[in-house]
Amino acid sequence: MRIATTVFLTDESVRPTWLGRELERRGFAGLYLPEHTHLPVSRDTPAPRGEPLPRPYGRTLDPFVALGQAAAVTERLGLGTGVTLVAQHDPVSLAKRVATLDFLSEGRFTFGISYGWNVEEAADHGVTRPDRRELVRDRMALMRALWAAEPTAHQGPFGSVRAGFAHPKPVGTRPAGDPLTGPRTLIGGAAGPRLFAHIAAYADGWMPTGGRGLTETLPALRRVWAEAGRDPTALEVVPYGVLPSPGKLAHYADLGIEEVVVQLPSGDRAEILRTLDAYAQYL
C-alpha cells in the first residue's frame, strides 16, 4: 500500500520545497494539496467538518504553484491536488496548468477534483450550486479535448473550444483503448448515486474524505462502474485526509485499496517531522 500525504500549505506553514524533499527522502508516495481561492467572511454554508473553520482554509497556497516547486526538487514523489475546484477555473487555462505540471514532473501528477462545498466562494466565481456538477463534467470534457493527441473541438452546455494545437500534453500513460485523456483523475465527494455515475463516466476513481463506510459504499460504486462498461480492475479508490492506525490500514488493504493519503498538520517543521516519524511505521 502506498502512503501519500496531504497538508494545508499556507503563508504561515513550511515551504513545499522543504516538505517535498523530506517526504521523498523518507519514502512517502506523494503530496496532495487542497485548494481554496479565498474564504468569504460572510458565510452561511456550514463547514463539512464543523465550525469554526480552521484558519488555514483562508490562507492556502495555490496548489499548482506549490506542487511545481515540490516537483522541481524531487524525482519520484507523486504530486496531486486534493482537490481542484474545477468549476471555479477557466477550463482552457486550467488544462494548460495541469498539462504543464504533469509534463514537467514526468507524469507524476494526479488530478484530484471535486465540486466544492462553499457556496459563497463559488458564487464569487460566478458558479451557482445547482449547476456545479454538470459544469464540472462539461469542463472536464473540454479539457480532455485539449489534451487529445490530435486537434479536437468541444461544444458543451457550458463552454466550447475550437480544434487547435495545445501543448504540452500530459504524459501519464493510459491502457490501450482507454477513451479518457489526461492525467489520472480522482473525484472527491460524499458517496451517492450522482457522484458514482460521474466517477464511472469520466474519472479513474474516487477520493473519499476520511474513508469511513467503505465496506458499504464500495460495492455500490463497483456496480455502477461495471454497468458503465469500465474495466473492473481499473477502478481506484484513494481514501483522503486519513488519520492512520494499523487496523484502519489493514481494513483498507482487505478492501483492495492500494493508496491512502494521510493527514499532516499545518504546523512548523518540528511538528511535521514528529508526525512523519510517527507515520514511518506504516511505510
Rank of each mutant, 00 (worst) to 15 (best):
G164H: 11
T60Y: 00
R2K: 14
G30N: 02
T128S: 15
L142F: 07
A234F: 02
A71V: 09
A71S: 13
E236G: 05
A4G: 13
R108A: 09
A203S: 15
F8L: 05
W147N: 03
A71M: 03
P170C: 07
E121C: 06
R144I: 04
P56E: 05
L19I: 06
A163H: 10
P16Q: 10
H154G: 09
T45M: 13
E236T: 15
A234M: 00
Y115N: 06
D102A: 06
V161K: 01
Q263W: 03
A270L: 09
G112S: 13
N118E: 12
A141E: 01
E227S: 12
F28M: 08
D11P: 02
V260A: 01
Q263D: 06
R222F: 05
V119G: 01
R137V: 04
R108L: 08
A234T: 03
I199Q: 02
P219M: 09
D44L: 15
F165N: 01
R222G: 06
L104A: 12
P183G: 09
L33K: 05
K248G: 11
P157Q: 12
T110A: 05
V136Y: 08
R132P: 06
A149K: 13
L243A: 14
V242N: 04
G50L: 13
A190L: 15
L39E: 07
L235V: 12
P168I: 14
T10I: 10
V224A: 15
V7H: 00
E259P: 01
T5W: 05
